[in-house]
Nucleic acid binder design. Structure first.
Lengths: 232, 232
DNA sequence: CGCAGCCTTGACAAATGTCAACAAACGTGG
DNA sequence: CCACGTTTGTTGACATTTGTCAAGGCTGCG
């Protein structure tokens, strides 16, 4: 594995506190690979052979059942995915594919389980990471069950605006069809939802979104830290 | 804390492997309390002062937003809840209330965080527990996003039947209004969904459910281990 | 240029929620 | 034990939300 990638992985919260020798043991047999866009990295149901780390690009976690498909999360650099399957030595619950050209580090799952059995500080970092992931999914669950699709879109846009620096105008950085899937609706419904938010001060032109009246939109969206804050 | 409760807690997978002294440190200041039904134990947004362990009875985890409310999970003996909030020292994302008369052990969250910083084997047990919880929520998320309410009900009944020993006939052990909330629909819609499953070999009388044609129901429900199996 | 994929729109269908009414089950206090 | 009121479950009628299908415009790319 090249030095720069090695460093990037080492600096992740998940790995930064562990002993040097543990980290070496972890990286034995690990490697970095470049993937083009739209490559399926893992398939749900497969055994979890590698813990993946997105170094650049982005990855879509999705799942299919009975001919339907839904996007569950987007992984952006620099973070890991399918940590839970790895530690439980259980099959992946989600599939993953690159959304764009991406560099991914692959760490043998066996190493992760072995090192975590020996290095308490690594185990502690994993606890923090998994607790965080768990809370994220709970928030997504609340978003889905407590809100209509219009409300989910409004809150998504407010979150996205904040994450993008708070400017009135910003870019959606994903395809609308995928956004629809993330938000749990059809592309057609998303199109109509964008129009449905116009009365609350929203303008959309292609992938460019402008919130002309944040107060009005928030009044409609009623964002809540226990659903919409990334860190709490 | 009484001896019997002490033992029950000690035998939990989460605590069984840790050193005796760690366990003692954990239990310092812990106590057991009996609650009647319908008591709100914790409220979402509150700081996580105690890790809770259900010793008997059952607990509903739910959440509210904008005048709506939804049940997210049921906790049955003997297991913990709100572990993630405890380890992150973050506010509860869900509220909890007793569904029936229940005995609950309360372990100061501070103890949990302190012991987990010192005892690697406890940290490892937490990793296993949290990974399990995470995977459960992912499955619930897939259930919600990939299936209609009729399909969710059908699969719920098949899961429940298996959990209850596989007999053709079994009891729903929760109120239908709550089941509706768990499944993400209204009580009215649930009533109709039960009738909608009659053609696939389902009979309902009060809280008693009989699956007269399991093959037909499964053909409709298409249960999937990556959504419906509790353990994988 | 021409194709393929995405986005949008309209018309329609299906799923789900809301409101109201009522029956059945339950718990409480007489 | 009964009477009473409260809660839950069911049903019907209806509204709203969401999905489906088909068509057309737009864009990007070979």
């Amino acid at each position: 594995m090249p030095d720069s990638a090695f460093k990037d992985v080492r600096n992740l919260a998940l790995f930064s506190q562990m002993a040097d020798e543990s980290f070496s043991a972890l990286m034995r047999g690990a490697f970095v690979q470049n993937f083009p866009a739209q490559i399926e990295l893992i398939t749900e149901g497969d055994p979890s052979d590698f813990l993946h780390v997105v170094l650049s690009g982005s990855v879509d976690l999705f799942s299919a059942w009975n001919g339907r498909e839904t996007s569950l999360a987007t992984i952006r650099p620099i973070s890991t995915f399918i940590l839970a399957a790895t530690v439980r030595d259980a099959p992946y619950l989600m599939s993953a594919r690159t959304l764009e050209k991406s560099r991914i580090a692959l760490i043998p799952s066996q190493n992760v389980r072995a090192v975590f059995d020996n290095d308490g500080s690594f185990a502690r970092a994993m606890v923090a990471e998994l607790a965080q992931c768990y809370r994220s999914v709970i928030k997504a669950q609340k978003d889905l069950k407590l809100r209509t699709s219009l409300e989910r879109l409004a809150n998504y846009l407010l979150r996205h605006q904040r994450r993008a620096g708070g400017a009135r105008s910003f870019e959606l950085e994903c395809e609308k069809r995928r956004l629809a899937s993330v938000l749990g609706m059809t592309p057609e419904n998303l199109s109509r939802a964008f129009r449905g938010l116009q009365p609350y001060g929203l303008q959309v032109d292609g992938t460019r979104v402008t919130i002309t009246n944040a107060a009005e939109l928030e009044k409609f969206a009623k964002p809540n830290p226990l659903i919409d804050d990334a860190t709490t």
